[in-house]
């Protein structure tokens, strides 16, 4: 567990460094994930320890968003006044775009499967 965790933190640090150097808008942890993926493809896969650590962390991904989710109920006054309009727009907008992207990806991948590549 500890070895795996050290590895993840090291790659996050590498990611932060890469972002600083290239002044990219991509956040450090995401760059770290891409670097780790490249490393895994080169080295031929994760160790059991890294694999287990990753599994235990990813399992609790929802939990790590929870404090920010609670913040939704504590927005500053001038923002919460606009909240009903924004909220309604987001519910409708998200539903619309989920239906659209679902339809799109089904169509695009269906064609691919039909042409014998799926």
């Amino acid at each position: 567990m500890l070895k795996g965790f050290i590895c993840l933190l090291l790659f996050q640090l590498l990611g932060e460094a890469a972002v600083e150097l290239t002044r990219s808008p991509v956040p450090g942890p995401v760059a770290g994930m891409l670097l780790l993926l490249v490393w895994l493809l080169i080295s031929g896969g994760p160790s059991d320890d890294l694999s287990n650590t990753s599994h235990s962390l990813v399992q609790y991904l929802s939990l790590f968003f929870l404090p920010a989710g609670v913040g939704l109920f504590f927005l500053p006054e001038h923002i919460s006044a606009q909240w009903p309009a924004i909220g309604a727009a987001m519910v409708a907008g998200t539903l619309l775009s989920m239906l659209f992207t679902g339809w799109l990806v089904k169509r695009l991948s269906g064609k691919r499967a039909a042409s014998g590549e799926g």
């Binding site: 790659f11 942890p29 770290g32 994930m33 891409l34 780790l36 990753s54 990813v58």
Partner: peptide
Amino acid sequence: NKLLELLLGPTTVALAIPLY
């Protein structure tokens, strides 16, 4: 809850393993 927010970083990095 700083601890949980802090863990979001290494967990993002850990997503490389299922991707791989």
